[in-house]
Design a protein around this nucleic acid. Structure first.
Length: 480
RNA sequence: CGGGGUGUGGCUCAGACUGGUAGAGCGCCGCGUUCGGGUCGCGGAGGUCGGUGGUUCAAAUCCACUCACCCCGACCA
């Protein structure tokens, strides 16, 4: 039974996505501000949950939060050659203020390496100042050609970490540590979304970086979505911004920097990975509301006895379960069931007169929509039952996503197989090609290299385009 | 930015070809009824037809420009 207002995934996946965003009330188009969206309460609450989970991990790995200005002098952005080339087309400029033309335009940050580089060069003097481990939560703006809610918007919210190190090895270790301990840990353990970890090819490397690492997840249409990136910037930015330090031997050294980020695009990943034709599915550990309780009654007398039973039942939930009681009197239970399903609340509890008499309650799990996921359980021990159920749902979502990804990941040995595989998912293949080869494949197959996975085979094989013998495999996919 | 499409009460759309002063369903408000999977009935409110300019006695309708959104492509977190 298709839900009203939601185009089934099989009919039109892109439209389904937009329908979920609208119907679950996550965002509104900011049609008066090009390419921007309004994060509505439901959508923003999910971002806040993501911020909490990430901020915790960012701090646990030794970083502190700071905040830099939104505006960057245009000349500063121009300092790192590749960086300029990468971002110049999509920056917005501020040229007037207080009714007058500014002597030098500002750009609205598309990312903050440059302005942060400027200040880091002032702050770093000695090897004793290093490492510098900072992060900022911010909004950034990129004037993208084509926008889609959460996945690509002109303004988006993110965190960007920027660190400075004494040696290449330390910068490298930092970039990897964040990838694994902050990003992959968060995405897999909180969002129930399995990721492929790996290195980007030179073509896909961040503008100005030495090496870029990324996490790639598979969406339900088989396309890849980069959920996080972490860059070893080498000495490129340190040279451009003169970030130097005096080492133990009183010699001036150029520092090594990293940057890493995760954005509100992650909300899009969550939607596209887990949701279904019935609506949004929010993974339990992330869910702002984990449990909704729907009372069922006819008369006023039944209403008060049911609500009283709910009060008693939920008395010890505070602090352990994030829940709400939907005691709205003007909508019917069936309507509420649909509405909470649409909004992706992981667990729904229904309690009516029958339950009051029998000491039971009906519990429905969102990952099994409709009546399929509904069971009647005793009221005794309900809290523990729900806690366990939430964990089961988390695991079920993760397992389902992993199985889906594995089923749609094919190892290919010919160009024809590659072309076929990227139609439905990830293609894994031996690769010794260069950027030109990648561009050609992108033009022909609309697929790009996502990552060179850390997990590599022991045996060698022939590159899919050059035929050269190599031990390196890459993943190709169509990407968001 | 190139190609295609769409803008009419909160939402989905009709009305446009053939100009004559705006409709339906859902939603919303009120009353009653119902309540274990999107209740039903009656009554009611709500729109300068995306914007600007033009043609005309008269424009949602015709013309020009413009803005936004959606789809495909190129760019990208």
């Amino acid at each position: 039974m298709p839900k009203e207002g939601i185009t089934p995934r099989a009919t039109d996946y892109a439209q389904w996505y937009l329908d979920i965003v609208q119907q679950a009330d996550m965002a509104d188009y900011a049609e008066i501000v090009r390419g921007c969206i309004v994060f509505k309460a439901t959508g923003y609450a999910i971002w806040e949950a993501m911020q909490r989970g990430l901020d915790e991990r960012i701090k646990a790995t030794g970083h502190s939060n700071v905040y830099f200005p939104l505006l960057i002098p245009k000349s500063l952005l121009m300092r790192e050659a590749e960086h300029v080339e990468g971002f110049a087309p999509e920056v917005a400029e501020v040229t007037r203020a207080a009714g007058e033309e500014l002597p030098e335009p500002y750009v609205i940050r598309p990312t903050s390496e440059t302005i942060i580089g400027y200040f880091y060069s002032k702050w770093v003097r000695s090897w004793r100042d290093l490492p510098l481990l900072y992060n900022q939560w911010a909004n950034v703006m990129r004037w993208e050609m084509r926008t889609r809610p959460f996945l690509r918007t002109a303004e988006f919210l993110w965190q960007e970490g920027h660190t400075v190190h004494a040696t290449e090895a330390e910068a490298e270790a930092e970039a990897l540590k964040v990838l694994h301990e902050v990003y992959a840990d968060f995405v897999e353990h909180e969002m129930a979304l399995p990721v492929v970890r790996g290195l980007k090819t030179p073509k896909e490397t961040f503008a100005g970086a030495l090496r870029s690492y990324a996490l790639e997840a598979m969406m339900q249409d088989g396309r890849a979505l980069q959920t996080a990136t972490s860059h070893n910037l080498g000495q490129n930015f340190a040279r451009a911004f003169d970030i130097t330090y005096t080492d133990r031997n009183n010699t001036i050294q150029t520092a090594w920097t990293t940057s890493w980020g995760i954005s509100t695009r992650l909300i899009g990943a969550m939607i596209m990975a887990h949701s279904d034709d019935e609506g949004l599915v929010v993974p339990p550990r992330l869910a702002p509301t984990q449990v909704v309780v729907v009372p069922i009654y006819r008369s006023d007398a039944e209403r008060s006895s049911v609500l009283q039973a709910i009060d008693q039942l939920t008395a010890d939930w505070k602090g352990t379960l994030r829940f709400k009681v939907d005691d709205r009197d003007h909508v019917q239970p069936g309507f509420k069931f649909n509405e909470w399903e649409l909004k992706g609340i992981p667990v729904r509890v229904e309690l009516g007169p029958r339950d009051v008499q029998q000491g039971t309650v009906a519990v429905a799990r969102r990952d099994l929509p409709g009546k399929a996921g509904k069971t009647v359980v005793p009221q005794a021990g309900l809290r523990e039952h729900i806690q366990e159920l939430l964990e089961q749902i988390h695991q079920a979502l993760y397992d389902r996503a992993l199985r889906f990804r594995d089923e749609r990941t094919v190892t290919v040995t010919s160009y024809a197989e590659l072309a076929e595989a990227v139609e439905t998912g990830f293609a894994r293949c031996y690769w010794a090609g260069d950027t030109a080869d990648e561009v050609k494949i992108q033009q022909e197959l609309k697929a790009t290299t996502r990552v060179i996975p850390f997990a590599q085979p022991d045996t060698a094989g022939r590159c899919i385009v050059t035929g050269k013998e190599t031990t390196q495999q890459v993943i190709f996919a169509r990407a968001y």
